[in-house]
């Protein structure tokens, strides 16, 4: 019974203060759209960083007839395996046999392998470190190369620099998101404050005829909630449009391996909507407190 009255009052008030309501919805829309864009972009960068990190491996190439004069023996290979097993910096490793390497080569560069007389490629261990920063340490632990190992290679300077840039971008994203979050909260709070300030006389009258604080507050909070809902749904629709229309055009030009992905869109949308609802409702409720002390 009460609930229906509050809903009626809230809609009445939205209609009566249409320009303020529209302003509030727009504020939420802009804030949430930018935040959503940032979250999507940021999570894409994080995902990309992880991808680059995955590339940071140490390759241990074994001897072949071509490089050392003799092929590495199984014993020598097992000795290296033992060393990797004992190294705490090593997360995992994968043995790539001569045949595996040849198959991969065939897949990637068919024209090069077509008329090769035999397989010149070495067997290798692909070593993934616990942390990307440890590639250098792992490579160093294999210096000088054990018997049967031709060379030890790791992601070198290029990958390291990429990682550094990614770290900076990630930091910028984090700070940017926080600033955007604070800015949109302040913006929304300010819109609410202005809207309530312009209606403080109305609130005073309500209190003078015996309305309890909750009777005044509930429709206001509901109104904030509805504006937040409307604004964030519009923002989500805009983000969806951006994702469906603009993104393919941009992404088509960037080489992007399949394991790089922005966050799940429904999750981002849900976060934005829930945040807007909370800011709308509690923002109104808290702002109102000052004006209810009559």
């Amino acid at each position: 019974m009460r609930a229906r009255l509050f809903v009626t009052e809230a809609f009445r008030s939205i209609a009566a203060n249409l320009s303020t309501s529209v302003a509030a919805v727009m504020t939420v829309l802009i804030g949430m759209f930018l935040l959503g864009l940032f979250i999507a972009l940021g999570s894409w960068v994080i995902s990309w960083t992880n991808h680059v990190k995955k590339d940071l491996v140490v390759d241990v190439y074994f001897c072949t007839e071509l490089t050392c004069g003799t092929e590495a023996t199984t014993k020598e290979i097992n000795a290296v395996k033992l060393q990797l097993d004992q190294n705490p910096d090593v997360k995992s490793y994968k043995f790539v046999s001569k045949d595996d390497a040849w198959e991969e080569m065939k897949d990637r560069f068919p024209e090069l392998t077509e008329n090769a007389p035999r397989n010149p490629l070495p067997a290798s261990y692909e070593v993934i470190p616990e942390d990307a920063d440890q590639v250098q340490a792992i490579a160093a632990s294999l210096q000088p190369p054990p018997v049967g190992v031709e060379t030890v290679k790791y992601g070198e300077k290029k990958a390291e620099r990429v990682l550094q840039v990614a770290k900076i971008i990630g930091g910028i994203f984090l700070v940017g998101s926080l600033i955007l979050l604070v800015a949109s909260t302040i913006l929304i709070a300010n819109t609410i404050r202005l809207s309530i300030f312009s209606r403080r006389r109305e609130i005073e009258v309500m209190k003078l005829v015996g309305a309890s604080n909750w009777f005044v507050r509930a429709p206001f909070m509901l109104e904030g909630l509805l504006c937040g809902l409307a604004g964030s749904i519009l923002a989500v629709v805009l983000l969806l449009l951006a994702k469906e229309l603009a993104l393919p055009g941009i992404m088509g030009r960037i080489e992007s391996p399949g394991d790089i992905q922005a966050w799940n869109f429904p999750v981002v949308a849900l976060i934005l909507i829930v945040m807007s609802l909370l800011v709308g409702a509690f923002g109104s409720g808290i702002t109102l407190r000052r004006f209810l002390r009559i």
Binding site: K207, L208, V209, G210, A211, S212, F215
Partner: peptide, 13 residues
């Protein structure tokens, strides 16, 4: 404070 609305409902102004 919570009883003030009751007071005002019984006090026309």
């Amino acid at each position: 404070r919570s009883k003030v609305p009751m007071l005002r409902r019984n006090l026309g102004c």
